[in-house]
Amino acid sequence: MEKEKMYDPYEGFKQISEMWERQINGLLFMAADNNEFVRLASSGLGIHSRYMELLRKNQELMAGFMNIPTKKDVANVANLSIQAEGKIDILEEQIWNLQDSIGSLNKENLELFQEMVRMIKQMQAEFQKNIHEAAELKRMYNDLHEIRKDLVDIKIIQVNLRDVREEIEEIKDLQKKLVGVNSLNEQANIHGGLQEVKHELDQLAEIKSELALLRGILVKESPKGKVKEKELVTTK
């Protein structure tokens, strides 16, 4: 390996050429770094520019005589398409702005619609709830109406009961009187009267059972029924 490195002529050639390149460039750099060279370059640049101007001018003149387009004419046409391209770009950017604003508007609208749908759904739920409550109220109203009717019946029964109680009181008075009475006719009359009272007592028992039944219904149907029952009880 050592030998291989020693005998590679290209590496040596490369190093020498690099060294020469650097040195010659340095030399040229130094040679050019003076005012005279700058003046020479400046006048050279001026002469070349004048020559180019003249050439372009003559070119335009000749082309004008021959009525053929020059590079300048082609450039003018090209400029028109560049301008059109620029305008399309501006339009495209304006379309973007429109797209963006429509997009944001759509987003806002969507949010609004979503809010509206949510509210409508909520209202629908509330409405359903109200319908249910109204049905409940109607049922309660009917129940109350029935209770009211029953109360009227109960009042009538109460009046009847009061009459029956009075009659019982009268019977008790009669019984007391009967102790002293021994005649058979009177006994027969009394017996008939007792039969009548017995019959009325049977009716009273029936009424009582009906009342118990009514009370049971009231308790079952509504909590308010309990209140009503209490009321009934107190009325009794």
């Binding site: 640049l45 520019s49 004048r50």
Partner: peptide, 23 residues
């Protein structure tokens, strides 16, 4: 670039205006 060239460019001795316009 060599310093004198840079100086020439900065003090207007070396002007590229006409060259650029010509091309």
């Amino acid at each position: 670039v060599p310093s004198k060239w840079l100086e020439g460019l900065q003090n207007g001795q070396l002007n590229i205006e006409r060259f650029a316009d010509a091309y």
